[in-house]
Simulated scan of single mutants.
Amino acid sequence: MSRHSIRRLLVGLCTLTAASQAATALALAVPADQHRATHSAARAVRPQTLSDLTTAMKGEGFAYASYNLYGTQADREGHPAMGKLFRATAQTELNEHLREAATLAGVVGTDAANLRQAIDGETYEHQIMYRGFADQARKDGDLEAAKLFSEIASDEGRHRDAFRTALAVVTTGHGTIPAAPKAATVPVSAGLPKVKAARTKANLDTAMHGEGLAHANYMLFAARARQTGNPALARLFEGTAGVELHEHFAEEAVLAGLVSTTKENLHKAVSGEHNEATNLYPGFAKRATAAGDTAAAGYFRDTAADESKHAAAFQEALNKLP
């Protein structure tokens, strides 16, 4: 998609389910982050644990995208060591924390199941989420955001159509997988928010979390496609993932004023990592333990310990700044 976890206009309308996401009505009733974080296979973990794993994946996907932007900003300011720290931490969030959560949640299925997930998510974002965000931004006077949300909604529709075509090819063995979209990298420099309404700011945050998770999940789906001997499908997922990250997330980050000075970015990173280490993940671990989901509980505890180390590393870097 040229827009495209965050995936929440209709949050609360329904809970995560182990049933198939095939029906269009259900696809439109469930937020896109839930579609992207699940497939139709039966779950080994309890619904609350699955919900917590989804929240974790959204946070880790957002951290990956944000920290890479913070790293670029640090380089601009002449702090290469801090840029390296941000990028290294981003890789841990994506390639360890998010992937481990995805395994526990059973995110990746067959190529056909993965395409159905993608279609459901893109349909929701195209028909409901981004259109709703655009209407709200327009009413609140944030016209630039309204325009961006509308453009991304259109992108998501094109992504959905490409995935539908790919699903037909995968299920019938006839036809050609669509060519992968090419992402244009949008630069994101330090700056103040370009929107004024609290609702628009919240919707941008939701959208960025969605794009971060979409990027991560599509890369997982791409890896699965390569394992099954379908490089064309892998390229489609990878290209769409690039659009989600380098265009949609980046464009939303510009409007949200996500990137600040390196000093301010480090402050945000310390605060976020500390919260995950002391509140978020320990709480998830406690619930998973009570539910008997021991593997998930262990994951949450281990990730909390990692986030504590991240917080300490960011604080050490912060202490070196004047």
Rank of each mutant, 00 (worst) to 15 (best):
A137V: 03
T303P: 02
D33K: 04
Q127R: 04
K263R: 15
P282N: 13
A183K: 14
Y218C: 03
L213E: 11
T165Q: 12
A18F: 05
L245G: 06
K194W: 06
F86T: 03
L213V: 03
M129W: 01
P322K: 14
A29F: 11
P322T: 08
F163I: 00
A42Q: 11
E244F: 05
A222C: 06
Y299Q: 02
A25I: 09
A317R: 02
S260I: 01
R224W: 01
Q34D: 15
L115C: 03
Y67L: 06
T89E: 05
L143E: 15
A190P: 15
A232L: 13
D155A: 13
S308E: 09
A18T: 14
Q127E: 06
T110Q: 09
A197N: 10
G229N: 13
E211D: 08
E273P: 00
F300P: 02
E96Y: 15
L104P: 03
R287H: 13
R131F: 07
A90E: 06
R43L: 11
R36L: 05
A22Q: 05
L53H: 06
P80T: 05
A250W: 01
G283A: 10
K309Y: 14
A168D: 12
N265P: 13
E252F: 06
V186K: 14
R8E: 04
G239A: 06
S150K: 12
A63L: 15
A214D: 14
H126I: 11
Y64D: 11
V195K: 08
H267N: 08
M1I: 07
A23T: 14
Y67G: 02
A44E: 09
T172Q: 07
E316A: 15
A63T: 15
N68R: 15
E125V: 04
L321A: 09
A304S: 09
K196H: 10
L53T: 09
F62Y: 10
E60D: 04
K196C: 05
F300C: 00
E60Y: 01
P47K: 10
L143R: 05
Y281K: 07
N95P: 01
R301H: 10
A37Y: 11
A101Q: 01
A311F: 00
A179T: 07
F86C: 12
R224Q: 12
A317W: 00
F133L: 05
G239M: 01
V188E: 07
A42N: 09
T55S: 09
F249P: 03
T24I: 13
R87L: 10
A313Y: 03
M82C: 00
L220W: 03
A190V: 10
A25C: 04
A216D: 05
R138G: 07
P231N: 13
F314Y: 07
T278L: 10
E60H: 02
P193V: 05
H174N: 14
A88T: 09
H35I: 04
S308L: 13
Q315M: 11
D155F: 07
G272N: 04
M219Q: 12
P282M: 08
Y281E: 04
T49I: 09
